[in-house]
Simulated scan of single mutants.
Amino acid sequence: MPELDTLIAEPWADYGLLDSGHGRKLERYGRFRFIRPEPQAMWAPAGEDWRADAEFVPGSDEEGGGRWRFDQLVPREGWPVRWEKVRFTASCTPFRHLGFFPDMAPVWTWMRDMAPKSALNLFGYTGVGTLALSAAGADMVHVDASKKSVEAARANAALSGMADRPVRWIVDDASKFVAREVRRGKRYDGIVLDPPKFGRGPEGEVWRLEEGLAPLIGDCRKLLDQDSRFLFLTVYAVRMSALAIGELVSQAFADLPGRVEMGELAVREEARGLLLPTAIWARWRND
């Protein structure tokens, strides 16, 4: 089994992890600053100046998810930000996210450099990864069970000047869609998937990561061949090891050339340069 690797998201013009500690993190998204809960930030923060435009206050077990508390005016419809050639909208969502996952930046770069001619983005959310690959010339299929997320992804494509790029925007249950693509005999150069711990499809389908991940990876393997370039899997917020998902991918891709790697995603804090871990990942690469 290979050693674990860490993919690090460095600060860029429209995003930075300013400080972290005592179970919270202070970030900048464009011209705004936000405080959000972060259980893995168990250390003390670097500084005391945590002025922010808004803070997400988690709810109690009885209340549920929590709410945003705004100290300054933040546009409810969102505001434009940019990562390289991709423009998109950040916004304060009810689930404490801000419309994209900045720790995925090194993944976007790596996938783009693998130069796939066609790629499938499962659980594609607001489409930043889809647009990063599309900007590099890939024909894309973007799948998410949320109609609202797919609409936001299409709006981000228009904002990026890529509304006419060859992207199929699909509202569907990821597992069902992949199973149909297998029956159709489809193939892709690359697949990226970022499944949630729990979710529901557009027709009430129930997704549970521990039950659904292995069959989904098995079907994804059938959409790739010896000339394909990669599969990239990220997993958040579960009691699961990178070694575990690495072995899952290794077994599924044992009959193909290339190699399997695994590790953690992390964001570099601007205040001290320390790394805040955010997710685990595994990938099959054929380069």
Rank of each mutant, 00 (worst) to 15 (best):
M1K: 05
A9W: 04
L18M: 04
S20A: 15
S20K: 07
H22A: 14
L26Y: 06
R33Q: 12
D49V: 05
D49M: 06
R51S: 15
D61H: 06
G64R: 11
G66T: 01
W68T: 10
R69Q: 15
L73M: 08
L73P: 00
L73K: 15
R76L: 14
R82G: 00
V86F: 01
A90N: 10
P94W: 07
P94Q: 02
F101V: 02
M104G: 07
M111W: 06
P116Y: 03
T126S: 14
A135K: 03
A138I: 08
D139I: 05
M140I: 01
V141L: 00
V143G: 00
S146Q: 02
S146D: 08
S149Q: 14
V150Y: 03
V150I: 15
S160N: 08
R165L: 05
P166Y: 07
D172E: 15
D172N: 09
A179Q: 13
E181F: 02
R183T: 12
Y188W: 15
D189G: 12
G201Q: 09
G204C: 07
E205Y: 01
A214I: 02
P215R: 00
I217F: 04
D219E: 15
D219I: 02
K222Y: 04
Q226E: 11
T234C: 15
V235P: 03
Y236F: 13
R239T: 12
A242V: 08
A244E: 14
L248P: 01
E261W: 05
R268H: 01
R268E: 14
